[in-house]
Amino acid sequence: MPKREITKNSKITVYSVDSVEPEVAELIEQAKLAASQAYAPYSNFQVGAAVKLKSGKIVLGNNQENAAYPSGLCAERVACFSAKAQFPEESIDMIAIVAKQASAEGYTLATPCGSCRQSMSEYENIQEQPIKLYLLNAEGEVYESDSIDNLLPFKFSEKNLKSE
């Protein structure tokens, strides 16, 4: 069997935070604000997410930990679930995610966990348009993904539930 590329339509770009568009810079700043308010007494790892809706509204989320560890929730799902609960008819255009140790000054690259990737992918499916994702690293670089699918190429979706 010949080799074939299965991710040729994916696009992830890395560039300096100083060169982002103003709306992306604002979204990253909002994600930083959200991270600073995270409830992370067990891991001391603060994650913030800022979701920008089609209308321009921004909804924030941060990680919410719990002494019963599985009862906590990641920043990405807090933000997305909150956005869709408050504005169910609006599509999600973009999400910025930042993370840092509580005692650190700088941020570290932290990609969404599998549950968050699956949840965000569901919103792409529902709205039938990609969601741009922005991640900040410690060197002041921004990783831009033009779709959640880039992070979850073999996603589980409603197509898997249909019988033939």
Rank of each mutant, 00 (worst) to 15 (best):
D93R: 12
G56P: 01
S157M: 03
P112M: 07
V142N: 01
L73A: 07
K11E: 11
P2D: 11
N44W: 02
M120C: 03
A104G: 00
P22C: 03
I148E: 00
S36E: 07
K159C: 02
D146E: 14
S163T: 15
P2S: 14
S91A: 10
P41K: 14
A25G: 09
G61M: 03
G106E: 12
A35F: 04
S16N: 10
F81R: 15
A35S: 08
C74I: 14
M94W: 05
E76Y: 02
S103E: 10
L60F: 01
A138R: 05
S19V: 09
S82H: 10
N137E: 03
V14M: 00
A104I: 00
L135A: 05
N62C: 08
V98T: 05
A138S: 08
M1R: 11
R4A: 11
T111P: 03
A85G: 10
A68T: 13
F87P: 03
D93H: 06
N62A: 08
Q37T: 14
M1P: 13
G56I: 03
V17H: 08
T7N: 13
N125A: 14
A99F: 02
A31C: 03
V24G: 09
I126R: 04
L135Y: 02
V78L: 02
P88R: 09
K3R: 14
E76P: 02
Q118Y: 13
I28L: 13
A34D: 01
I28F: 08
D146F: 13
Y134L: 02
G61L: 05
Y143P: 08
F81K: 15
N44S: 04
V17K: 13
N62D: 04
S121E: 05
E5F: 00
K84W: 04
A79C: 00
I6F: 12
F154W: 09
M1A: 09
I12S: 09
E29V: 15
A75V: 11
K3Y: 12
E141K: 13
V98A: 00
C116W: 00
C113R: 13
K54P: 07
A110K: 13
K159L: 01
S82Y: 08
L53Q: 02
A38G: 01
S91V: 06
S103W: 12
E124P: 06
P130W: 02
K162C: 07
D93I: 15
P2V: 14
D93Q: 13
L135K: 04
M120D: 01
S103L: 10
S163R: 12
Q129C: 08
K132S: 09
I12K: 11
V17Y: 04
Y15Q: 09
A31R: 02
S91R: 05
V51N: 01
S10A: 14
E164H: 10
I97L: 10
A40F: 08
L151E: 09
I148M: 00
N62Q: 10
I28A: 12
N9I: 14
K162H: 03
A85Y: 04
A40H: 10
